Simulated scan of single mutants.
Amino acid sequence: MTERVTLYGKPGCHLCDDARVVVTQVCDELGVTWSEIDITQDDQLFAEYGEQIPVTFVDGRQHDFWRVDPVRLKKALTS
Rank of each mutant, 00 (worst) to 15 (best):
Q25L: 10
F46W: 10
T40A: 01
G9R: 01
V71H: 11
D17K: 12
E29Q: 12
D18K: 04
I37C: 08
T56R: 00
V68A: 07
P54V: 05
T78Q: 12
E29I: 00
Y8C: 05
F57H: 09
G50S: 06
T6F: 10
L73K: 00
V68G: 00
D28Q: 07
V22R: 00
D59W: 09
Q62E: 15
R72T: 09
R61S: 12
A76R: 08
D42G: 11
D59I: 03
V58A: 00
W66L: 13
P54N: 10
L77F: 04
H14F: 11
V32E: 06
F65R: 13
Q44R: 12
R4V: 03
F46L: 15
P11E: 13
V71A: 15
T2S: 14
T6I: 10
V68F: 04
V68M: 07
F65P: 00
D43P: 14
S35Q: 15
C16H: 07
D42R: 06
C16P: 05
D38G: 07
K10A: 10
D69E: 05
T56A: 04
T6K: 13
Q44G: 04
K10M: 07
D42M: 12
L7R: 02
E48Y: 02
Q41K: 15
D28W: 01
G31D: 05
R72V: 11
E3D: 13
L15P: 00
T24Y: 09
L15S: 05
L7P: 01
S35D: 14
R67E: 03
T33V: 08
K74T: 00
R72P: 01
T2G: 02
G31F: 13
D43E: 15
T33M: 04
L7N: 02
L73D: 03
A76T: 06
D42F: 13
T33Y: 07
T33A: 14
D43L: 09
R20H: 10
H14K: 11
Q25G: 14
V21G: 07
F57K: 07
C13H: 04
I39D: 02
V5R: 06
V32K: 02
D69T: 00
T78F: 09
A19G: 12
R67Q: 05
L30A: 09
D43I: 09
D64L: 11
A76H: 02
G9N: 06
R61C: 05
V26E: 03
V21P: 05
G12Y: 06
H14N: 14
Q52F: 15
Y49F: 15
R67T: 08
R61Q: 13
C13T: 05
Q41R: 15
C27H: 01
Q62S: 01
H14W: 10
E51M: 15
F46G: 03
V71M: 14
K75A: 13
